[in-house]
Amino acid sequence: MTDSFVPAERARLALPRRGLMLIMSSPSGAGKTTISRKLLEAEGASLAMSVSVTTRPIRPTEVDGRDYHFTDVPAFRRMVDEGAFLEWAEVFGNLYGTPRAQVSAGLAAGQDYLFDVDWQGAQQLAQAAGSDVVTVFLLPPSVAELESRLRGRGTDSEEVVRGRMDRARAEMSHWSEYDYVVVNDVIEDCFAKVQTILAAERLKRTRQTGLVDFTRGLMA
């Protein structure tokens, strides 16, 4: 078998599958943003960050439709009433929501989505999307290490750091509500584990929508 044959053979044997919603949560400073960026870079077009709708003012570096779908409060409220969101929440006076139609269409086409939400958002998405959801919670190796990471940013006051630590403890109390829990001690090790979780979940029989026709063909 030549090297040029392998990609073509893999493409020929690729079976249709339903996409999944990979939800990652962690306390601030546990590395969720870093792991998310590495996943998006490694997976390319097969994994997309979910683009939320928000009433927050757009920032100079942001692009409408890429970073967020920006709207006003009345329009957002209408979308809530119409059931247009899988989940939504108010954060620091601004509204954020996950558009249902966009995600549903992508999942049906085999697109995987990455969600960066807290435990409340994870619960809402799990209730709304059921078996399409895979939840991962990242833990720091220790409280001392988490505090060191937060202080190492050098941008927050003592009061802000204490507030973040209090919120971190509250968030970590929900670890048992997740499908997978990974301790982020070494970034590369943590990334490898999360990528393995994603690969395994993609292979679940219930997501392999093309298996029925494939196996019928084998037995014909």
Rank of each mutant, 00 (worst) to 15 (best):
A129D: 05
E188K: 03
T155C: 02
D185M: 02
L198T: 00
G163L: 06
F214G: 02
G106V: 05
V63A: 14
R59P: 02
D67V: 02
V183L: 04
G29F: 10
E171S: 13
G65Q: 06
L39C: 13
V161F: 07
L40R: 14
G154W: 06
Y180P: 09
L114A: 08
V143R: 15
L107A: 08
C190V: 04
K204G: 04
A220G: 08
V51S: 03
V136N: 05
E82P: 03
A45D: 12
E147W: 01
V117W: 01
G154R: 03
L39T: 11
L15P: 01
S157Y: 00
M49C: 11
S148Q: 15
G83F: 01
W175R: 15
D132I: 01
Q102F: 10
A220E: 11
D64P: 06
F5Y: 03
R17T: 04
R207Y: 14
A105M: 10
V181I: 14
R216I: 04
A11P: 03
G210V: 07
G19H: 08
Q102S: 13
E41T: 08
L125C: 07
W88M: 02
A220Y: 07
F115C: 10
A192C: 04
V212M: 07
A126M: 05
T155L: 14
R205C: 02
V143S: 14
S26E: 07
R207D: 03
T33Q: 13
L86F: 08
Y178G: 06
S50Q: 13
R202L: 02
Q111P: 09
Y113T: 09
S157A: 07
G106P: 03
E90Q: 13
P57Y: 09
L218R: 14
L138P: 07
R207N: 05
P57A: 08
G83R: 09
T55H: 05
G29H: 12
S157R: 09
T209M: 01
L95R: 10
A144L: 05
S25N: 12
V134Y: 06
E201N: 07
R149D: 06
V80A: 06
L95D: 10
V143E: 11
Q123V: 00
S104H: 11
S50K: 08
G29S: 04
L114Y: 06
T55V: 06
A101G: 07
D156N: 12
Q102V: 13
F115R: 04
E147C: 10
A30S: 15
D3A: 14
A199Q: 11
R10G: 00
